[in-house]
């Protein structure tokens, strides 16, 4: 059985919104350590994954490993019935094909309960090699979203060039080209407020060409986190990570494009 109580529905809503256009259905894997998910899109170009650690829930009970097959369109519709500040209780009783979601309003005067039919999904798991990236960029997630949105008006792909001085995003299309350079920045802005910081750690300069359609899809996770971390290695998939407060993360992997 599973019983997991999440203090704010907004977290689950944002996670589902940031995955549902990439993956139509997948298993949520539940264990003592938390709830995780991994699935590729139909074309095997992008992989989405998330982890919500058990300590992000209060309480969290899962006494054996479970794979719960979820259709994201259904989950998304049902989560729209929850207020952002509602508490969400996720419940699964052994040997059933139903997942229950209970939404409790903050004043406790409204309690809604929805049951979702679970699917039997055989999933393939990809083992992702643990390797230190040649370059790790941390930047404002809002800035990253803006760059992806701006450059898709020019072309279908972006070349990301990371050097010690900063990160350059360039795109070329039939009608022209454009580029945006983000320099490593200080942590304090003119008003003395902490501003989102861009940091670049690298062992090698990296250049990757990537599909902007997918990157724009990934930026749907930007509302979850002020920062995005990009792990990049030449000729390897990009890994993008958005932290989910301090309880977990969403990660996306995107295969690069190569010149003939």
């Amino acid at each position: 059985m599973l019983e997991a109580r999440l203090p704010a529905a907004s977290i689950l809503k944002k996670i589902v919104e940031s995955i549902k256009d990439l993956v139509s259905q997948a298993n949520f894997d539940c264990s003592e350590s938390g709830i995780s998910f991994q699935a590729m899109d139909e074309s095997n170009i992008a992989l989405s994954s998330f982890l919500l650690r058990a300590d992000g829930f209060d309480p969290y009970r899962c006494d054996r490993k479970l794979s719960l097959g979820i259709r994201f369109a259904t989950l998304s519709k049902i989560l729209k019935c929850a207020g952002n500040d509602d508490v969400v209780v996720i419940r699964y009783a052994d040997d059933t094909d139903i997942l229950s979601l209970v939404f409790e309003a903050p004043d406790n005067n409204r309690i809604s309960e929805f049951d979702i039919k679970l699917l039997d999904i055989s999933s393939e798991y990809l083992s992702i090699p643990e390797q230190e990236p040649e370059c790790k960029v941390k930047m404002s997630s809002a800035e990253f979203s803006r760059i992806c949105r701006d450059l898709i008006t020019i072309g279908s792909s972006v070349v990301i060039d990371a050097t010690k001085s900063g990160v350059k995003f360039s795109s070329t299309g039939d009608d022209g080209s454009g580029s945006i350079l983000i320099k490593q920045s200080a942590s304090v802005d003119g008003d003395g407020k902490a501003a989102p910081q861009t940091t670049v750690e690298m062992s090698e300069p990296v250049s990757l060409e990537l599909s902007l359609k997918y990157l724009n899809n990934f930026t749907k996770a930007a509302p979850l986190s002020e920062y995005v971390v990009m792990n990049m290695t030449n000729d390897s998939p990009l890994m993008l990570q958005f932290d989910v407060s301090d309880i977990g993360y969403i990660r996306y992997f995107l295969a690069p494009q190569i010149k003939d």
């Binding site: 095997n44 170009i45 992008a46 992989l47 990809l126 998939p237 295969a255 494009q257 010149k259 003939d260």
Partner: peptide
């Protein structure tokens, strides 16, 4: 001309 690779080129099935 650029070619889009897939993740199967990099990650193995478990």
């Amino acid at each position: 001309m650029t070619n889009q690779l897939t993740l199967n080129n990099f990650f193995s099935n478990n």
